[in-house]
Design a protein around this nucleic acid. Structure first.
Length: 594
RNA sequence: GCCGACUUAGCUCAAUUGGCAGAGCAACUGAUUUGUAAUCAGUAGGUUGUAGGUUCAAGUCCUAUAGUCGGCUCCA
């Protein structure tokens, strides 16, 4: 239990995340104080402070000053912070009137604080926290004194726009982390090192899954091992979608400008699209699959009896992403969406969305992934009537609530054509990435004049849903690499079985065994190098191959195979047939155990 | 796109104040015939991201540019 000074100024005893959050908030004040001391000049005005909150991984402070900080300054700042910690200064909360607060910060040249105060609601209490010679506008909470901050470390520097708006000035952001004890800090740093070992960019290279080249920034190249994963994921995807009664289509990558004008992308998505000319006419490379699906829909008249009509498509889309955002397989410029467009009546929306959520849940469970759902509502640059947005948003909300899913709401984060539910998955260091998404679209059926014939014999407008489970195959593979640290379940790992003959004498038998397993559909290889067994085992372990079989005189004589599983120190004996059915069972059940 | 850092052999990394571009692993060749996490020896591998500049001399300093990394913004 830790004592903290809460937002209303009272003292409370808290523990866990809440206590840590307070500690880190105080740490950010200590850092700001240290930076003021070191670089603020006599009156402190050379350093202007913006905001400095605690975050999940620690804290940061955004500052504005002429001097450009580098990581070499960290040692100085940390040393100054240590002094402040050692002084064990009490944090004291005070309240000022709006005028007094504005005057105080204006006098100090803290124009960002002035702006923050100005934007506080009229009835807000303006609280300050003071430690020694440093006072900051702050709602709290904080720990009682600077001496509590026993273990901290500055982590990185970054630029950050004031108020997150790219039209504003870019400030210098310093990230740090803090813990109550040195051991906790050490554990955290160790965890980060381990996470770096799971990084999909590193493992992608080591396991020879994919590569990225200067010749195509953001356009990943998949190697044979990576393609095994991709194809297995798609096989599984097709099985699931068959069961959920989807039909698959394929639409072209390059389509005429007119189509994109009809769909609204030409007006709303142009900055993310690539263009080309064919026979003097404008064409665009598709950033989404939906207009193609709309054209397929229109090739027939549809009865209400056809609905819901589920058209799946694994579509390769290209999007121009700003150069600074590319990130391994997580953020690329072309990717395969495991898309589907569902056409239905308004009455069917809620039930159909629930089916989609069921499908998502099933798929994520298969990969041992936990996810977080987010509902995004109407953005500013959007099309359609208030009423339609209202109806669509509440249908999504109801589906989420009926399924009992926890979700958060992102106001104004929807697509320009409708609200959406996003499913976020975590990478190795806890950053979340949007994978699955369910987007209601009231616009496209209108734009493309999509209709179905109702019971009444009249034409009606269907509702459309876009949805992806994996999101992008590329991103999903990245998530899987980090989730499994490269040790994939048998069913989609690139090489399932490695046969290790002890000497050349055992090569022939090994090769025969390999052929037999290969013909049964297993991904199996023989290590026929003239290396010692220990070396072959080591290499197979490093490549994270699920099953190793050492073949020597004994095995040839008895026909019993010693199976050594990945991560295990010893082997278990199995007959060839038992081993075959054992592995077949692991694959059939998509087990993540070996 | 913006802020900062980085870029040396296939990979991971060295190279003192500017002074002969190197190691381990991988690859290849040969020897070795090996029983559960690295056998030995040899060979080859480079316009130091790219383009300029400063200098007697540039991996090292300067400018531009590309890419990568950490963030911001944006997003599957």
């Amino acid at each position: 239990m830790e004592k903290i000074i809460t937002k209303d100024g009272s003292i409370a005893e808290v523990e866990g995340v809440e206590a840590l959050h307070s500690l880190r908030h105080t740490a950010s004040h200590i850092m700001a104080q240290a930076i003021k001391h070191l670089y603020g000049g006599a009156d402190g005005k050379a350093v202007k402070l913006a905001i400095g909150p605690a975050i999940d991984t620690g804290f940061y402070y955004d500052i504005d000053m002429e001097r450009k900080l580098t990581e070499e300054d960290f040692a100085d700042i940390e040393a100054e912070m240590k002094k402040i910690v050692k002084q064990n200064l009490k944090l004291e909360r005070s309240v000022l009137s709006r005028e007094d607060a504005l005057k105080k910060f204006a006098d100090e040249g803290e124009n960002y604080k002035v702006e923050l105060i100005t934007d506080l609601p009229a009835d807000a209490e303006i609280s300050l926290f003071t430690q020694g010679d440093f006072t900051d506008l702050c709602a709290g909470p904080h720990v009682e004194s600077t001496g509590k901050v026993k273990a901290f470390k500055l982590m990185s520097l970054a630029g950050a726009y004031w108020r997150g708006d790219e039209h504003n000035k870019m400030l210098q952001r310093i990230y740090g982390t803090a813990f109550f004890t040195k051991d906790e800090l050490k554990d955290y740093l160790t965890m980060l090192e381990e996470a770096a070992r799971r990084d999909h960019r590193k493992l992608g290279k080591e396991l020879d899954l994919f590569s990225l080249h200067d010749e195509g920034p953001g356009f990943p190249f998949f190697h044979p091992n990576g393609m095994v994963i991709q194809n297995e994921l798609l096989n599984y995807w097709r099985q699931v979608h068959r069961r959920y009664r989807y039909n698959e289509i394929k639409t072209p990558i390059i389509l005429n400008r007119k189509l994109w004008e009809t769909s609204g992308h030409w007006d709303h998505y142009k900055e993310n699209m690539y263009f080309t000319k064919i026979d003097e006419e404008d064409y665009a490379v598709k950033p989404m699959n939906c207009p193609g699906a709309a054209l397929v829909y229109k090739t027939h008249t549809h009865s209400y009896k056809d609905l819901p009509l589920r058209l799946a498509e694994v579509g390769l889309v290209h999007r121009h992403e700003k150069s600074g955002v590319l990130h391994g397989l997580f953020r690329v410029r072309n990717f395969n969406q495991d898309d589907a467009h569902i056409f239905m009546t308004m009455d069917q929306v809620e039930g159909e969305i629930q089916k989609v959520i069921d499908l998502f849940d099933e798929v994520y469970k298969t990969f041992d992934l936990s996810y977080k759902a987010e509902l995004s509502t109407r953005p500013e640059n959007s099309m359609g009537s208030d009423e339609d947005w209202e109806k669509a948003t509440s249908a999504l909300q109801k589906a989420l609530e009926n399924r009992g899913l926890d979700y958060i709401v992102n106001e104004g984060d929807g697509a320009f054509y409708g609200p959406k539910i996003d499913f976020h998955l975590k990478d190795s260091i806890g950053r979340t990435w949007q994978c699955g998404t369910i987007q209601l679209d009231m616009q496209l059926p209108e734009k493309f004049d999509l209709t179905y014939v109702g019971e009444d014999g009249e034409k009606h407008r269907p509702i459309m849903v876009h949805r992806v489970v994996y999101g992008s195959i590329e991103r999903f593979i990245g998530i899987l690499i980090e989730n499994y640290a490269g040790a994939f379940p048998v069913w989609f790992t690139p090489v399932q079985i490695k046969i290790l003959p002890i000497t050349d004498k055992h090569l022939e038998y090994s090769q025969k065994l390999c052929d037999k397993l290969f013909d049964l559909g297993f991904r199996v290889e023989v290590d026929d190098r003239s290396e010692k067994t220990g070396k072959k085992i080591r290499d197979a372990q490093v490549k994270k191959i699920p099953y190793m079989i050492v073949i020597g005189d004994k095995e040839i004589e008895t026909g019993i195979l010693p199976i050594r599983k990945y991560g295990s120190q010893n082997s278990v004996d199995m007959s060839v047939d038992d081993f075959i059915s054992y592995v077949q069972e692991k694959i059939a059940t998509r087990s993540s155990e070996y």
